[in-house]
Design a protein around this nucleic acid. Sequence first.
DNA 1: ATGTCC
Length: 475
Amino acid sequence: MDLGRVSRHGEAEWWVEPYGAMRVPAVLYASEPLMREMDEKVYEQACNVASLPGIVKASYAMPDAHWGYGFPIGGVAAFDEEEGVISAGGVGFDISCGVRLLETPLTREQVEPLKEALADALYHEVPVGMGSTGRVHLDDAQMDAMLAGGARWAVEQGFGTWGDLPRIEEGGCMAGARPEFVSRRARQRQADEMGTLGSGNHYLEVQHVAHVEDARLAEAYGLREGQVVVSIHCGSRGLGHQIGTEYLREMLLEAARQGLKLPERELACAPIRSEVGREYLGAMRAGINCALANRQIITHLVRQVFARVAGVSELGLLFDVSHNTCKREEHEVDGKRRGLFVHRKGATRAFGPGHPELPPGLREVGQPVLIGGSMGTASYVLAGTEESETRAFSSSAHGAGRSHSRHDALRHWRGRDVVESLARRGILIRSPSMRGVAEEAPGAYKDVVEVVDAAEVAGLSHKVARLEPLACIKG
DNA sequence: ATGTCC
């Protein structure tokens, strides 16, 4: 990106003052090297978002931002609940794609001899890859219950424990879901896909805590150096995608009816108070519950594998964050509390200490912010801080962020080579798709350390621990 | 992200 187009407002904060149709500034959080590398498309898309009706304060991009559909991935935008809009492209197609972190009582030394067996068993038990189906099959009534209940429904069905629920955003159940606005086709696509990982950047990874960055917070989170943890990254599979596709079309029609001027059709949106807006909100919330239930079922499968292979089943849930959402939240804007609909697309909510929505045990210290690295590289646990509330409506980065397109990655890397080079470093990869592995080559992503450092310097969240991979099940 | 174009 040409830094001549932005003005610097801090070590890791860059502004585009409103011009043309922009109603508010665009604010990009990144270090100077990340800014130089960042796609010009992020600049354009963040500015486009800034022109949408009812946007409040600014259109934001996180340090891992890259080119997305309409909104950048790594984009945050909040809209006034009376005059604002909601956008399917602003949430993303994989509704509530997210990450959860499970903590085992095992050390790296204990797991090393079991690594192959764990990788094989996880790969066998957790369905992965495009179009994969699982052992859970839902009829229409069960689908309604799942879409309304989320992870709470999954626990009722015997997946995981009641103690998991407070460690999930929304207590594991997104309120206001309206299953009746989820189409027959979306339901059909999901009927056999519960408890499956999917493909693309989704993964299930066995990791160890390589370094504690903040001893007090690590202790509060139950993390210690050498400990083995498990990360689960997946979303709402076919259902979320179908909801996104259908409502995008509806929003194009609605925007035309309302006479909204869109910078491009990918920014299709509808007034939050319109019928289409309310229906999407209900369907999207049902999509959130689908993703929460999905991660809850996979958690159960992971615990079963660990019980069988390693003799331990007490894998506590640190936290579950969603990356692709639009949520009604109250934030202070110019000294006033306002109800806002906050779109986070490839961005993590990062509530600081004292936030009433955090459960006991986390409320005192701030919310865990889980940042998944690329395959074979580090992941990070960070924490929301008091400062986070003053940055992008309490948001942070969500991952390393792509630096090369999938197409580009296929020309640069071969899946088999990637698997072999990681194996030489002791990192096991299990995947049905060598093409997928090539697309996900570590080199196709930004350096997660740079992203996390930028998040810290920008005041988005605070580093707690670095995780390094041992084995990765890749979709 | 996605039954990788109903």
